[in-house]
Amino acid sequence: MKAIICEKFGMPESLIFGDLPDPKINSNQVLIEVAACGVNFPDTLIIQGKYQFKPDLPFSPGGEVAGKVIDLGEKVKNYQIGDSVLALCGWGGFAEKVAVDVNRIFALPKGIPAEIAATTLYTYGTSFHALKDRGKLKSGETLLVLGAAGGVGLAAVELGKLMGAKVIAVASSQEKLELCREKGATATINYESEDLKSRIKELTNGNGADVIFDPVGGHYSEPAFRSIAWKGRYLVVGFANGEIPKIPLNLPLLKGASIVGVFWGQFSKLEQEKSTENIFQLMKMIREGKIKQHIGKRYPLDEAPEALRTMMDRKMLGKGVVLVK
């Protein structure tokens, strides 16, 4: 089968487009013919050997796919050959076929295209879990989203608006902020040209943000936290900036605030019933037109390394998707 191959850990430019043997499935797996695979920040870490899980070499990156079931393990009872599914494979998705554990597969509702399904779980799944389960976001509260024009950030903007919050989007260009406004941001901050801390205070009448969604990290995290409201919740989603910030612990004490970790991948494994319920709710929102993924760019399989480079350079608006079939 054709695949993007990581033969040694490194940058996207070290990946090659070539052939790998078809995956073999065990009794609790299904084999999926991949139609589309989402492009996600963890993919950029996996190819460098920096993620929580390190696959054996050689492998294909790509952790979020949609496609059709073409083979079943003998213990798989809930799916049939020909079923349309979306799946969390972890890696292996930038290929024509991928083997996935049956407990990481979800039936794809009719009417949802493969490219939408393959770009929903990581971004909307993460953001919905963060805002609903970890941040306990309430209608009428103020939500501040850092890195708001990226995949998870834009999903947080859209979901926050849907949940009744006043959403302040923070990004690095007017083009990105305009996209955030289209998705429902009430106010915006360009942190390349505006002072983040003072602008947050100004936009919240000195009260600060009730919930801060941070998938970026780096040197903007501390000024954002210094602008959090009393009893605010600071959601640590990721470190796209590449720098893990150090927050002085007197700040949560003085603010009566919480620093809350958001690890959606682990949540989806350890709390499968609750995670599945969230995914069903998201699929319902998509079918009803309440949320709509913004696909920044579509890539053929052989251009997947370019998609990862765009992600690493933080130039991707919304979500990228690799179309395999």
Rank of each mutant, 00 (worst) to 15 (best):
A3E: 14
C6L: 14
W230K: 06
L196R: 05
K269W: 11
K50P: 03
A35G: 11
M1C: 12
I291K: 04
G256P: 15
L196P: 13
G49Q: 11
D195W: 05
K231V: 02
G38I: 02
F41G: 10
F59V: 04
L249Y: 15
I47M: 13
E178I: 10
A35H: 15
K2L: 12
A171V: 11
L159I: 14
K68E: 15
I116P: 01
S268W: 01
Y234C: 02
E96F: 01
F128C: 05
D71A: 15
M285T: 07
N103C: 04
V65M: 02
A87D: 14
L15H: 12
S268A: 12
G135E: 11
A114E: 10
P245H: 10
I112R: 04
Q80C: 07
D302E: 14
K284E: 09
I116K: 08
A130K: 05
L108C: 01
L86D: 01
K297F: 01
Y79G: 01
I105W: 11
I168S: 03
L143E: 14
P248D: 07
L72K: 13
H219F: 10
S14N: 08
K297V: 00
I212V: 14
G289F: 13
N207G: 03
E182V: 07
V30Q: 06
R104A: 08
C6M: 12
K176S: 14
R298N: 06
N40H: 10
Q29K: 00
T120R: 05
D19C: 04
G10W: 08
R181Y: 02
R298F: 12
K297G: 00
I291A: 04
E141R: 00
Q29C: 00
T120G: 01
G206K: 11
C89R: 11
R104V: 00
R134C: 12
W230S: 06
M11Y: 14
G320L: 04
A257E: 12
K297Q: 06
K274W: 00
P305T: 09
V236E: 10
N26P: 01
I5L: 02
R233T: 09
